[in-house]
Simulated assay, not measured.
Amino acid sequence: MYVAVKGGERAIDNAHAWLAEERRGDLGVAEMSLEQIREQLSLAVNRVMAEGSLYDADLAALAIKQSRGDLIEAIFLIRAYRTTLPRFGASLPVETEEMACDRRISATFKDLPGGQILGPTFDYTHRLLDFKLAAEGQGGAAAEAPASGAPLPHVTEFLNKEGLIQQEVASDETPPDLTREPLEFPANRPLRLQSLTRGDEGFVLSMAYSTQRGYARNHAFVGELRIGRCAVEMEVPELGFAVEIGEIELTECETVNQFQGSKTEPAQFTRGYGLVFGQAERKAISMALVDRALRWEELGEDNVGSPAQDEEFVLSHADNIQATGFLEHIKLPHYVDFQSELELVRKLRAEATEAMSEAAE
């Protein structure tokens, strides 16, 4: 039977008040400002912007503060807010070759035009706690090396000149917009890339790791990883030409993958691709590995049954907001459903007990 919940609204109001109290914490500790979150927790801000599909560091910082640091909840807040924003038009494709790079590395070529730029990275740090950071005002010294402003060619173009890597064919067709249209299968590559770039970092990382462990036969090199700022341009019909409307920070990764050839393609290298808002190199590399695994049919490869090769499995489970909604709904009241199942189990047990008694007689 269904039992009505009394005092529900009052309980919910009290829960909200308690949440606000917990969010604020000890009143003797200074409240964290949005500027502090934006500037000092920038990687968390970048993740919220990327998976929330909204490039606005201030709003991402606000969402992180409101969610008490729960990044998936913050991403949910950003996506919900995004649906209320008007859309004025579409920007032109970003030219990442013209990126002003803070970081640009290659694991395939040592000597590059423009050089390797290590940039801000954890790669060369010792994973030891730095107790200097616990002392207020003991921040690190500012870096002196400026970002590279000169256009830097993509590393894969060196292979492309010799015909050693798969040619990427440009398309004039406008790709579908995953933020406005539901995901449908089969999904073309632009749609898959959109899904991966806003997919949960942990899930995409796990899928990528599975390909490295042999599930998909995907042996990859990081052809190039670059992080920097790109100009965003938009065509203005009244002017008849494109104008720069802003600048965004991006992380781009191209992987170079072995390919033994197929019935239609000669032996050559192939590519995986990842592009993410902000500094998010782990996500970009993971995205590139999964992208390559999902291209098996396009390249005429065999599907070896790897989860990372299953388009529907990967894309249907990558979205953390969809996953969270389905997961967390089971903690909400299901009294009627459970009572019906409870009565069914009682009936089955009673029938089984009765049958056992008759058999014993």
Rank of each mutant, 00 (worst) to 15 (best):
Met1Pro: 11
Gly8Ser: 11
Glu9Ile: 13
Ala11Asn: 02
Ala11Thr: 09
Ala17Asn: 14
Glu21Asn: 08
Arg24Tyr: 10
Gly28His: 08
Glu39Thr: 12
Leu41Thr: 14
Ala50Ser: 12
Leu54Pro: 01
Ala57Met: 07
Leu62Lys: 12
Leu77Ile: 07
Tyr81Lys: 09
Thr83Phe: 10
Thr83Gly: 00
Leu85Arg: 11
Phe88Met: 15
Pro93Leu: 12
Val94Lys: 00
Glu97Leu: 06
Glu98Met: 07
Met99Arg: 00
Ala100Gln: 13
Ala100Cys: 11
Asp102Met: 07
Arg103Pro: 03
Ile105His: 04
Thr108Tyr: 10
Ile117Lys: 05
Leu118Ser: 06
Gly119Thr: 00
Thr121Ile: 04
Phe122Asp: 15
Leu128Gln: 15
Leu129Val: 14
Leu133Gln: 11
Gln138Val: 05
Ala141Cys: 09
Ala143Arg: 11
Ala147Gln: 08
Leu152Ala: 04
Phe158Thr: 12
Asn160Asp: 15
Gly163Trp: 04
Leu164His: 09
Ile165Glu: 01
Gln167Cys: 00
Glu168Phe: 07
Glu168Asn: 13
Glu184Ser: 15
Ala187Cys: 02
Arg189Met: 05
Arg189Glu: 08
Leu196Lys: 02
Gly199Asp: 03
Asp200Ser: 09
Met207Gly: 04
Ala216Asp: 02
Arg217Tyr: 01
Gly223Phe: 03
Arg226Gln: 12
Gly228Cys: 02
Glu235Phe: 09
Val236Ala: 13
Glu244Lys: 08
Glu252Ser: 09
Gln258Asp: 15
Gln260Met: 10
Gln260Phe: 14
Ser262Thr: 14
Gln268Pro: 04
Phe269Arg: 09
Gly272Asn: 04
Gly272Tyr: 04
Phe277Asn: 00
Glu281Thr: 05
Ile285Thr: 02
Ala288Val: 06
Ala288Trp: 01
Leu299Glu: 01
Glu301Asn: 12
Asn303Ile: 08
Gly305Cys: 10
Gly305Arg: 14
Pro307Gly: 09
Leu315Thr: 07
Asp319Lys: 00
Ile321Arg: 03
Val345Arg: 15
Ala352Trp: 12
Ala352Gly: 10
Thr353Pro: 01
Glu354Pro: 05
Ala355Tyr: 07
Ala359Arg: 15
